[in-house]
Each structure stands twice: as structure tokens, then as C-alpha cells.
């Protein structure tokens, strides 16, 4: 008999705590309707920046390609004799492989490869996870 009382009392005490939270504003976020604020440091998809002249800033040094632990970046480089610098003729990132470690962004000497705060990145086909230069250079 005392046991029943003890167990009931323990349950009531627990219920007391849950009841307290019943009157407090809920902490859950109703996702598609409201969104939480993403930190500016968020490691989302990759983006290449343009320089002040409006042309691509990347000079194809291939450091991001080499440092990537999962080999998801590939590029082709050519040299423009007139401007006396290198350009990339293609720059492809396979986001199906990417693990968003951020090593490429950290290593970029021109600081032209950056993360976006984009996190909604799902598609129906695997092919659309492979982003080419026209989508990355924004």
C-alpha cells in the first residue's frame, strides 16, 4: 500500500514539472513556416566570388582540389597570355561527395571560395548535386 502511494507521488512530482512547462512558450520551431536564424559562419554550399572588375577571382591554383579529403572538387585551368594570369575553364563540385568540412575555404589563398548559409539542398536526382562553374560562380 505504501508502495502504491510512493509510486503515485513520484509520478505526480514529475507531472508537476511537465505542467510547469505547459504554460511556457514552446521552444519548437514550426520549420517550413518559420526558420531559425543561421549563423553567418554556417558551412553550407560553396560559392566563388568575383573580383572588383567583375571577372572571376579564382586563378586556378588547385589548392582546394588537393586539400579536399573526399576529392569532390575538380577543375581545368588555362593560361590567358593577354591578361597574364590563369583562369579556370571548368570548376565542378560534386556535393554528393562533399562533407562540408570547410578545408577548401580555409586554404583558398585568394579568399574567393566561400561558404553560403544555404542549408536546404535536396534534390530528386544525384546528377543535380554536381554543380558546374555557372552555378558556383555567383
Amino acid at each position: 500500500m505504501t508502495k502504491i502511494f510512493k509510486y503515485t507521488w513520484a509520478i505526480l512530482k514529475g507531472m508537476g514539472i511537465t505542467l510547469k512547462y505547459f504554460f511556457i512558450k514552446p521552444v519548437t520551431v514550426q520549420y517550413p513556416k518559420e526558420k531559425i536564424k543561421i549563423s553567418p559562419r554556417w558551412r553550407g554550399t560553396l560559392k566563388q566570388l568575383k573580383n572588383e572588375k567583375g571577372e572571376e577571382a579564382c586563378d586556378g591554383c588547385r589548392i582546394c582540389e588537393k586539400i579536399c579529403p573526399v576529392n569532390c572538387i575538380s577543375m581545368e585551368v588555362y593560361k590567358d597570355e593577354k591578361k597574364n594570369r590563369r583562369f579556370t575553364s571548368s570548376y565542378t563540385v560534386n556535393f554528393g561527395r562533399c562533407m562540408f568540412c570547410g578545408l577548401c575555404v580555409e586554404a583558398c589563398p585568394k579568399k574567393c571560395l566561400v561558404h553560403t548559409t544555404d542549408f536546404e539542398f535536396c534534390t530528386y536526382e544525384r546528377e543535380s548535386l554536381i554543380l558546374t562553374k555557372d552555378k558556383i560562380l555567383r
Binding site: I38, S39, R41, W42, R43, M99, F100, C101, G102, H115
Partner: peptide, 10 residues
């Protein structure tokens, strides 16, 4: 963690 390193798990 997200504010420091930009990821929530890895």
C-alpha cells in the same frame, strides 16, 4: 557550436 565553427554535428 554553430556560431563558432559553422556546423552542428561534424
Amino acid at each position: 557550436y554553430e556560431s563558432v565553427c559553422g556546423a552542428r554535428l561534424t
